[in-house]
Design a protein around this nucleic acid. Structure first.
Lengths: 339, 339
DNA sequence: TACGGATGTGTGAACGTGCACACAGTAGGA
DNA sequence: TCCTACTGTGTGCACGTTCACACATCCGTA
């Protein structure tokens, strides 16, 4: 159990000793204040001489601020594999935090053990705030955030959370309604949906929007429910729809990956897109432009989502009042060739 | 500039006061030691009463150990978009660190500003070690790791690093040689390569293996160099090869994404795969089974790579001697339909 | 001469921990 | 009776930093 001590590092004391001044003066050189020219020179020489590297962790303890913000990804397995947006959201958040000189640290939660450890980490004083992706209300993370009043922001808002934590997302229902309405307007009559991830707000809201757009013409039999947003689910979902109604001529897929899978199933069934069947996806991910034909889809401003989440944290850190708890970002619909 | 202080938290002192004992006794309850039954009971009651949450950061300062390991992704933009493996590597590393109760924190470096801040973070005492993906020798990260003797491990070994930092990777050259040899063995005569990311070890080693396999038959004119491992590069690279030699009948693509792009270009040129042209990819990513035909490719054990990188760090933290500096993991070749 | 302000420096305390040490009481054996 | 061992508790210090305060010097002005 006895682990080796890491090598001894130079501290402000060492610099002070080497330069023949006190720690206070060294601190003033590092952080600003009145210092004479010769003292400054001696100290700067001493710093390079002893190879001083400031211990930010000690500063964080004293200052009660680490200038670090956590990016917590729950269920990262499905996120990283099925959702091409998570990377962009991360990069968007990082870029925004970077401008404010804050360090983003990403934590993934795959197991219950992870969950507990991450909760400890968040409450341990290592970070000043947390961006949380795809949480549920009963997660210990939420508990920690509530108990410590840790500044936080959710990406997509869990339906089972009370309105106490700021969030950013997109209008899933509205976008779904918009693309579905367009399918109707272009003459599609038998319109189905491949709905996924109904246990998440994104999934259920997209289905709700689809349903709202069709109104009285909504037919529950033309909704294929699949677990995830991935390609394989798309293939299975489309096969199911074709089986239930061979005359189907329009499909709203809950993600681009699903749409790509659906195209595959349609190809194997001998249907051509968009002449026989019109299909729209969701995400505007890299899938959209790689399929044949290219997908009409809903553009997710992933980078902006990350950036806004970061801003929500930074605002709280500055003690500013948030004007609204939630922010929904616009989602332009991209019309390409598949519908 | 004056930021609000975070709400005051309960400390061991508060517990001690509430329970009528000294800090030392509280510490013994938390960390083990001789404590009387009534003292323990009083302290445990006090802990829940005042809502105590241990400050791990303070413990880390005192112990000089944070039990956290950084996962540094350089150039994450291309990594996350082009390289489907990075997510799996992360999850593999996290799982392994999790078993040892260490927290993995991922840091992305996109800009020079990021680079500097991450270097500061690594040297600030927040982490005990670092897993670094796709570094170059001149990166400040390397400097920091060297200066502080921070335990580290590289994923893939940069060609311009001296042998001082442990690494884990795959035998890119050997695998490339193996698949190329197979192309030859199945009767392909005009074999080209779409080579990418030649400034990284993975890219240059794959090209070297290809070259070695062909020996005297190697023709530099049949190598199309593209910048990244992505789909678009595959399309362009294949068009270039077809232009240079319309009789080309075998292609080694440096990644599955490139191979998928190449298939697209071959389709538009009216060539059929594998009858006219045989093609092999690299990565065994999700691409491989989504293309038509499915790709023969080199399987990258991404999860294991992450796990081994984590082990390399944990070994160093335990002060154990590493038997070898580098570890190359086996890469089974998956033969599907494209060659 | 005395005083106030600007400039420059040193000292002590604190952030929240964990550990070494000192000390006290009890019990057992030589 | 003394020495040792074990249990139980409190105090002081250290980790490396920053900040408040005290103090010291110099200059210009009343």
């Amino acid at each position: 159990m006895s682990r080796p001590q890491p090598p001894k590092r130079a501290t402000v004391h060492d610099i002070a000793a080497a330069a023949g001044v006190s720690r206070g003066t060294v601190s003033r050189v590092l952080n600003g204040g009145y210092v004479s020219a010769e003292a400054r020179a001696a100290i700067e020489a001493a710093i390079t001489e002893v190879g001083y590297v400031p211990n930010t962790a000690a500063r964080a303890l004293k200052m009660r601020r680490s200038e670090a913000v956590a990016f917590v990804a729950l269920e990262p397995h499905s996120l990283f594999l099925d959702d091409p947006n998570i990377g962009s959201i991360m990069l968007g958040a990082n870029a925004e935090l970077s401008l404010a000189d804050h360090q983003m640290v990403s934590l993934v939660v795959e197991s219950g053990r992870d969950m507990e450890r991450v909760a400890r980490y968040l409450s341990g004083g290592f970070v000043d705030g947390a961006i949380v992706v795809s949480a549920r209300a009963h997660d210990p993370i939420i508990q920690v955030i509530g108990d410590l009043r840790l500044p936080a922001a959710f990406v997509g808002h869990p339906p089972d959370l009370d309105g106490t934590i700021p969030y950013v997302g997109i209008d899933n229902a509205g976008s779904a309604r918009e693309v579905t309405t367009r399918l109707v307007a272009t003459g599609r009559r038998r319109i189905g949906m491949i709905a996924a991830a109904l246990d998440r707000d994104s999934g259920s809201d997209r289905l709700a929007g689809f349903r709202a757009a069709l109104g009285p013409h909504f037919d529950a039999g033309l909704v294929a429910e699949v677990p995830h947003y991935d390609y394989g689910s798309g293939v299975k979902g489309m096969r199911l729809l074709l089986e239930r109604d061979p005359a189907i001529d329009g499909v709203f897929a809950a993600s681009d990956a699903i749409a790509a899978g659906a195209l595959e199933a349609l190809r194997e069934a001998g249907r051509s897109v968009p002449s026989d069947v019109g299909i729209v996806g969701f995400d505007d991910s890299t899938w959209a432009v790689r399929t044949q034909p290219q997908l009409s889809t809903v553009h997710q401003p992933a980078k902006e989502i990350g950036a806004v989440a970061a801003q929500l944290i930074l605002h709280q850190l500055r003690g500013e009042q948030l004007e609204t708890l939630g922010r929904l970002l616009p989602t332009p619909v991209i019309w390409r060739d598949s519908a």
